[in-house]
Each structure stands twice: as structure tokens, then as C-alpha cells.
């Protein structure tokens, strides 16, 4: 503890076998989630772009797709699924909660329709 590390020395050596394997798995997971995201995005664009899908279905559908895609980003690309991210989850979901309240209020409670 008292021999302090030099924080600007280049890191040497290779990762352990275990890390290597984990990273390999991770690469695969990330690729899969990327392909999933591309798919989801295309679905969203198609359901709005084509006349075959009625708007009454398309609008909630694309909102749901956006939700799925954000969860993919947060939990896979940004690693919010890892251990030790408890506080991060608390803060991000609290932020989303407050943001949702804000959006709801600014959409519905601005005096145009009275509830």
C-alpha cells in the first residue's frame, strides 16, 4: 500500500485466460445486441414508413421498441448488468423516472386540456 503505483506507466502483460475468455464472450454478446438494435431500428422505421401498418398500432409499437433498444444500450453496451453497478442503476432509473414525470407534465398539464 505504501509503495505507490506510478499512474502514468504503461500497463504491461497480457490478460489472464479467464479475462480473455470473458472478453471473447462479451464480443459475441455485443455483436448480437448490435444486430438486434439494427433490426429493432429498421422495424421502427418500416412500421412508420409503410402504409400497411396503421398508426394506432405503430405509435405504441415504436415507443416500445425505443424502450427495448435503450435497455440494450444501457445493460449491454454500457455494462449496467455487471456486478457493483447498484448505485448506477439507482441513479439512472431515478433519472428516467424524473424525466418521465417531466415529459408527462409538459405534454398533458400545460393548460390546453384540463384533467
Amino acid at each position: 500500500m505504501s509503495s505507490h503505483q506510478d499512474p502514468s506507466a504503461p500497463l504491461q502483460g497480457a490478460p489472464s485466460k479467464n479475462t480473455e475468455r470473458k472478453l471473447k464472450n462479451e464480443t459475441r454478446t455485443q455483436l448480437i445486441s448490435f444486430i438486434l438494435m439494427i433490426f429493432i431500428t429498421s422495424m421502427a422505421f418500416i412500421s412508420i414508413g409503410s402504409d400497411a401498418v396503421p398508426n394506432g398500432f405503430a405509435i405504441p409499437f415504436i415507443l416500445m421498441l425505443a424502450g427495448v433498444q435503450v435497455v440494450l444500450q444501457l445493460y449491454f453496451f454500457m455494462h449496467m448488468n455487471e456486478k457493483g453497478t447498484g448505485w448506477i442503476n439507482v441513479m439512472i432509473w431515478s433519472g428516467l423516472f424524473v424525466a418521465a414525470l417531466t415529459v408527462g407534465a409538459l405534454m398533458f398539464l400545460i393548460g390546453e386540456v384540463k384533467y
Partner: peptide
Amino acid sequence: WFFLGGETVLFGSLFGT
């Protein structure tokens, strides 16, 4: 990460507006 939590509200306000 916490900063990003705050940014969520920041963009939420813009989306709401």
C-alpha cells in the same frame, strides 16, 4: 454515471418542451 443520470433529466426536460 451520476452525471449521465442528471443528463437524463436534462434531455427529459427538452423532450417534454
